[in-house]
Simulated assay, not measured.
Amino acid sequence: MSLTIGMVAHDSKKPDLAAWAVQHAGLIARHTVVATATTGGVLKSSLPDLTIRLVKSGPLGGDQQVGAMIAQGELDVLLFFPDPLAAQPHDVDVKALLRLVLVYDIPAAFSPSTASALARSGLFDR
């Protein structure tokens, strides 16, 4: 069974998410990856063969699109690397996304170490 994995990162954390994705390319390549536009571009430059479905960039509604996918049961896992030290102009969208992760109880990781813990859990082996 294939998973749909959402991948989102704030600007300063995009390199961390890309590095994590390169390290775990074999795991995520078997699944459907959905990413916000700018994050997806960074991922694509690091993993040119990875198929990525792009939604809008976060500030333009991409976080809400990912949230809608969660609410509709279309997203199985979220890897979201936020920058906790920088103010985000679309902070309300970020909070709404996190709320949906909790409401619908989907597995989520917010840093490279928690994403790696999810990878070690066997979740991506489906």
Rank of each mutant, 00 (worst) to 15 (best):
P112C: 07
S12A: 11
S121F: 10
G73E: 08
G122K: 03
A19G: 05
T32V: 09
L27R: 15
P112G: 08
A35M: 07
F110N: 06
M7R: 00
P107R: 00
H24L: 06
A18T: 04
D125C: 11
H10E: 02
G41N: 09
I70V: 14
L102S: 14
M7Y: 07
L27W: 04
G41C: 06
P89L: 08
T114F: 01
D93F: 05
F81A: 03
H24Q: 02
K56C: 05
Q64H: 13
M69G: 15
V92R: 14
D16K: 14
S45L: 12
G73L: 05
L60C: 03
V103W: 11
K14I: 12
L123Q: 00
A115T: 13
S57G: 14
P59R: 15
L50E: 05
M1N: 12
L102D: 14
F80W: 07
S46L: 05
A9N: 07
L123G: 02
V22I: 12
H90T: 06
M69C: 14
M69D: 15
L43M: 11
K95P: 06
V42C: 04
I52G: 07
S57C: 10
G40F: 06
I106Y: 06
L102N: 14
L102W: 10
A25W: 03
D105A: 13
Q88K: 09
V92K: 14
P84T: 10
A119T: 06
F124I: 02
K14R: 15
A25L: 01
P48D: 00
L123E: 00
K44L: 13
L3E: 03
